[in-house]
């Protein structure tokens, strides 16, 4: 036992690189088998003939990839991207003020933060379901509007694109608030005082100092909203009924009722490409912002 221990110790610590490889191996192998390889298979499935009962036949075809550019599916893609972008923007408009209020608060700071962290940890499914109570025909909003006398008939809100948008925004707001809050908290108050001493009133200080310095948090939060919103099918399923189809629903259908795995794989690839374009755009943005510029 002791000899083994000594041998192992010497083997590991003679080379930190060897030690690192040994430590990384289990997680690396796991992610290779259960993440990377499956993604690779998805990529090949997109070019396989379809099996009626799910799965594929041997052989190759481009029929599924060609089908992607049919207007029917392009409309869904367009709608998904648009809805996700708008949801991200609205989430930002709600989240930035929340983060600001938390950072500026003194006595209530812990509570205000807790009220964001709580939904962050609460089941997304439950929160989406709970939204129905607010916006259904007999929900609180309709009750209030009728009580005030603004409307007679209940306003149809559930099972509309607006409902899906609302669900996405409230669903993902906590994911946007926390990174913005983190970057706001790191902001040195002396910079704002310096800007004030140099003549910038409050909103100018926001535009010229606070906003550019918290942009990394905004970008991180936007990715955390945009990516899951783009791939979501739960929100559109529960709040949109079957009426607001997004690319996530389309993928889900191919693997459930439609049983068209190759086309589902092709759709997934398309979705992945859009997400990766977003990621690359973000990396580029990061790089141009951090790269030192020399000369004029």
């Amino acid at each position: 036992m002791t000899r083994f221990r000594t041998m192992l110790r010497d083997a590991l610590h003679r080379s930190p690189r060897f030690e690192a490889v040994v430590l990384l191996l289990p997680a690396g192998v796991w992610l290779a088998i259960f993440f990377a390889i499956p993604l690779g298979i998805v990529a090949t499935y997109a070019f396989r003939p379809r099996h009626i009962l799910g799965g594929v036949y041997p052989g190759w075809t481009t029929v599924h990839v060609v089908r992607l550019v049919e207007p029917l599916y392009l409309v869904v893609l367009q709608r998904s991207v648009l809805l996700s972008l708008v949801a991200t923007l609205l989430a930002l408009i709600v989240s930035y003020p929340i983060a600001l209020v938390i950072v500026r608060a003194t006595r209530w700071r812990a509570l205000l933060l807790f009220l964001v962290v709580l939904p962050f940890w609460t089941s997304f499914l439950v929160r989406t379901y709970a939204t129905i109570f607010l916006i259904r025909d007999t929900g609180l909003i309709n009750h209030l509007l009728q009580a005030v006398g603004v409307i007679r008939q209940p306003l149809r809100m559930l099972y509309t694109p607006g409902a899906v948008l609302f669900g996405l925004v409230t669903g993902f707001v906590p994911f946007m608030v926390l990174p913005i809050y983190a970057s706001l908290e790191k902001l040195d108050p002396a910079l704002l005082e310096a800007a004030e001493a140099l003549g910038a009133p409050e909103w100018r200080r926001f535009v010229r100092v606070t906003w550019p310095l918290t942009l990394p948090g905004v970008v991180a939060g936007s990715m955390l909203v945009f990516v899951p919103a783009l791939g979501s099918f739960l929100t559109s399923d529960l709040l949109g009924g079957a009426k607001v189809e997004l690319i996530g629903n389309l993928v889900q259908n191919q693997f459930t009722s439609a049983r068209n795995w190759p086309f589902g794989s092709a759709l997934s690839l398309l979705l992945l490409v859009v997400v990766m374009i977003g990621m690359l755009a973000r990396l580029r943005l990061d790089r141009t912002r951090t790269r030192p510029r020399r000369g004029t």
Binding site: F35, I41, G231, V251, S268
Partner: peptide, 9 residues
Amino acid sequence: TPEVIAGIS
């Protein structure tokens, strides 16, 4: 990676 893709893969 969107969860749908992780799921179907």
